[in-house]
Design a protein around this nucleic acid. Structure first.
Lengths: 226, 226
DNA sequence: ACCTGAACACCGTTCAAGT
DNA sequence: ACCTGAACACCGTTCAAGT
């Protein structure tokens, strides 16, 4: 036996951008946005914090890369069929579910405008809206609105998840607390907010989200007829 | 003259929640999101960092309070007239401009779901949508969609402003850089994104934003007719 | 009641030194 | 080429001590 076993030479597997991103995702899923730390990460990878900087420029690039990995998988797992509106709905729902499962993705997405993860979403959305027969001029309007809406919902879901975690509640307990606070607002000043407090308590986020997508798609449709 | 001049006893004016919030806004406007620091703030107010904690629970409460002050002023400065859709447009544009002027408001808004600044927006939006004659059931759908859209655009604008600042560019130079990056994407994989790179370069954010509001309002309208 | 400021337990990032 | 880990320049927050 001329050499020692190859695998134990340095580390189980040597550091790579990919393994760093994978460990980051795990850390983020397990302990939320501020669970991602160069120290925690390097401990998990049995290195020093400096080693990570050989593969990744800085923390924001790391967060965006982790976000991009999730978004890429999500889009890949959402095939496009023949019915265009259904494709848009499926894409939107896929993203919604991904953010629900990884709340940090929602805020990472918002922090990296123009970067890869957003481009993937933009492209898919754009192709489908084009297939809808929307003309050049109105296309960006439709795609931009859908994108902003999806990011807006995603951002709020991310914040809900983060706040719930900070207060050691689950999501529904947190929404319950919001509803309770809203029902105690002055009815003369905040009649509407009070009136929907009940809805907040027992609504299905996912259903509401899809209703918004459909509402926007209706608007796109009615613009074509003008 | 029995006493020393009153004003020089302690400080020009004693510390208060209000003065702390005001100084925070100034700091945030001047140096962006991470310009708000308990040390910078206490230096500006000529106190120690601990003094601030007597008036405010923690940093996130401080950020939300600063955000709320801007939102409250903005809404107050946007009176409602008789034409409901115009009121919704005015409110949305007022918020857009406020976020444009204070980019940090966009991300502060997203970080405090269910809190006061969001409630103010929700309430105004809800009252107007109700006045539009939308029935109970569809009301939340319309309001929620508008709110998410506005927050989504606000969050992206905040991120654009923040990134531009970090790279010492102004907003349009930053968008220019995004457009340049997009035009170099592989045309086989990213045809749509490439095709709108030009639009990103010379569009007017404000016009696009309003187009989205109108698109959503069209969707609300067409749902009533079903 | 309100303020002071040192101290604590962290951060992200850098960089000389190692292999 | 890649990794190590101490060091730097910060953070938010707490708290004994002051007025």
């Amino acid at each position: 036996m001329p050499k020692k076993a190859r695998s134990s030479r340095r580390r189980e597997e040597s550091l790579s951008r990919e393994s760093i991103v994978e460990a980051s995702i795990d850390l983020l899923d397990r302990s939320g946005e501020d669970g991602l730390t160069f120290r925690a990460l390097s401990e998990r990878l049995t290195t020093g914090p400096g080693a990570i900087y050989w593969h990744i420029a800085n923390k924001s690039e790391l967060l965006t890369a982790a976000c991009d990995a999730i978004v890429a998988r999500t889009i890949e797992a959402t095939p496009s069929g023949v019915e265009t509106k259904a494709n848009i709905r499926d894409l939107a729902l896929g993203l919604f579910d991904a953010i629900d499962e990884h709340p940090w993705v929602g805020s990472a997405l918002a922090q990296a405008p123009g970067a890869m993860p957003m481009v993937r979403i933009l492209e898919r959305l754009g192709q489908q809206v084009s297939a809808l027969g929307v003309k050049e001029q109105a296309r960006w309007e439709a795609v931009g609105t859908l994108l902003s809406y999806i990011l807006g919902v995603g951002g709020r879901n991310a914040a809900n998840g983060q706040l719930a975690r900070e207060r050691n509640l689950d999501r529904s307990d947190f929404l319950e607390a919001v509803a309770a606070a809203w029902s105690q607002l002055d009815p003369n000043i905040y009649p509407f907010t009070r009136s929907i407090a009940g809805h907040v308590r027992d609504h299905d986020d996912r259903v509401d989200f899809l209703a918004g997508i459909d509402l926007i798609l209706r608007g796109v449709g009615s613009s074509r007829k003008r």
